[in-house]
């Protein structure tokens, strides 16, 4: 697990109040929404804010979120490509 992936997991746990979890409980390749972590539309909004505030990436179209937030790994990949 590289440092960005670990950091993202920590941030997701913190931002989405998943207190009971540790980074090790989240598999970076498993879906964040629906099954897997069971996140919802409000969590998606929080993840958009996390990208904005944590990485300076503004999602113009919230619809894009679906693909980006598929898993921790897809999120990390998106950050690597778009971070300023």
């Amino acid at each position: 697990m590289d440092s960005l992936t670990k950091q993202l997991k920590e941030q997701i746990i913190d931002h989405l109040n998943l207190e009971g979890l540790t980074p090790d409980d989240i598999n970076e390749n498993e879906p964040l929404f629906g099954e897997g972590l069971g996140l919802d539309s409000i969590d998606a909004l929080e993840l958009i804010l996390l990208l904005e505030r944590g990485y300076g990436i503004k999602l113009e179209n919230p619809q894009e979120g679906k693909k980006i937030f598929a898993s921790v790994e897809t999120m990390a990949e998106y950050i690597r490509q778009n971070k300023k």
Binding site: L18, G20, D43
Partner: peptide, 14 residues
């Protein structure tokens, strides 16, 4: 109480 009495329910933490 959650740990002792509840079945796993991740929404609880949110």
């Amino acid at each position: 109480l959650y740990k002792k009495y509840c079945k796993a329910y991740i929404k609880f933490f949110k």
